[in-house]
């Protein structure tokens, strides 16, 4: 078994608390370097026990500031924290400006916090392809709690639920009428709603609308999402926010939902990995093998249709 094998040096360094090694391997994972895959594999058995808190919500609602305050709260509670904050990459240049650090304050000598900015690198859904792997590295590095800040999300940027054990959806007053809260998408993934900028007028209405939504009854697994009002300028509600998150984490343990959720996430990850691999192989063969090329040509000429070609290809690849 993997656990019995000695760890590769970089993995050992990460486990022993070497932050430089952690930072370097994170880059290697982002860059899909082969060396990182072996480190990630070796560390995998040590991961999966820590709460991973996803913080998502539209642009400008204060996700970074909420995270900043949450980290301070967790440090007061003597819990160590690893943070990954994702910002978008430019579709034009591939570059990005990662600005989530600006909101981040902490004692510069505090080894109990690690903050990493990450570009989405072409991924949609609010996180980067490497985000999940990076949360595992932070887990293996021994941080008690892992926080993931998504890209400012739209209504269907829901990928955070593929990495987080608890999803916090941050909103602000006046985002829209109560019909917005009935819509599918973002509002469905929240385990905790955080109504931020609660010092602004309209916060009560936003809370009430959410309470009504939550009161309609949840589809999911017996957890009724908590609603917390916060302000980060004159901090308030942050303790309540953490309590609500913890309540959800306790619920996961009490009901066995943690294992069921993790099974769903791991299964989706495996499917995704296979999809990626098969897709790559298929693309390669479609370019190289004359017979397969001909099928595509015939679909272009309308003498075959794409579904029929797909059926044939699936058979050719040995699946059904």
């Amino acid at each position: 078994m993997t656990r019995a094998r000695p760890l590769p040096p970089a993995a050992r360094a990460i486990v022993s608390g070497d932050r430089r090694a952690l930072a370097r391997v994170i880059s290697q994972v982002e860059n899909r370097e082969p060396s990182a895959a072996s480190v990630a594999r070796a560390l995998y058995p040590r991961t999966g026990k820590k709460p991973v808190i996803g913080v998502t919500g539209p642009l400008g609602v204060g996700k970074s500031s909420v995270i900043n305050r949450l980290v301070a709260r967790l440090r007061d509670l003597d819990r160590t924290v690893g943070v990954v904050a994702v910002d978008p990459s430019s579709p034009y240049s591939g570059g990005s400006v990662l600005g989530d650090r600006i909101r981040f304050e902490r004692r510069v000598d505090d080894a109990g916090v690690f903050f990493r900015s990450m570009a989405s690198r072409g991924e949609v859904g609010g996180i980067a392809a490497a985000t999940r792997e990076v949360t595992r590295l932070l887990d293996a590095a021994g941080f008690d709690v892992i926080l993931v800040e998504t890209v400012g999300s739209g209504q269907v940027d829901l990928a955070v639920r593929d990495v987080a054990t608890t999803s916090v959806v941050v909103l602000v007053p006046h985002l829209g009428d109560e019909v917005q809260t009935l819509k599918a998408g973002l509002f469905e993934i929240a385990d905790v709603f955080c109504v931020n900028k609660a010092d602004l007028p309209g916060a009560d209405v936003a809370r009430r609308d959410l309470a009504e939504l939550v009161g309609l009854g949840g589809a999911r697994s017996g957890w009724r999402p908590r609603i917390v009002a916060t302000s980060t300028t004159q901090p308030s509600g942050i303790e309540e926010l953490w309590s609500a998150i913890e309540a959800h984490e306790e619920f996961l343990d009490r009901t066995g939902a943690r294992r069921a959720d993790e099974r769903r996430r791991v299964s989706a990850e495996i499917v995704e990995l296979v999809r990626e691999r098969v897709g790559r192989e298929l693309t390669r063969r479609l370019e190289r093998e004359p017979e397969l090329r001909r099928w595509v040509d015939r679909a272009v000429e309308r003498t075959l249709d794409p579904h029929t070609v797909a059926d044939r290809l699936a058979r050719a690849l040995g699946s059904r």
Partner: peptide, 18 residues
């Protein structure tokens, strides 16, 4: 630098050397 393809971590104002 962003437009040239860099990932720019913008740390902002009044940063100490540490």
């Amino acid at each position: 630098l962003r437009d040239a393809g860099f990932e720019v971590i913008y740390a902002g104002l009044r940063q100490t050397p540490e």
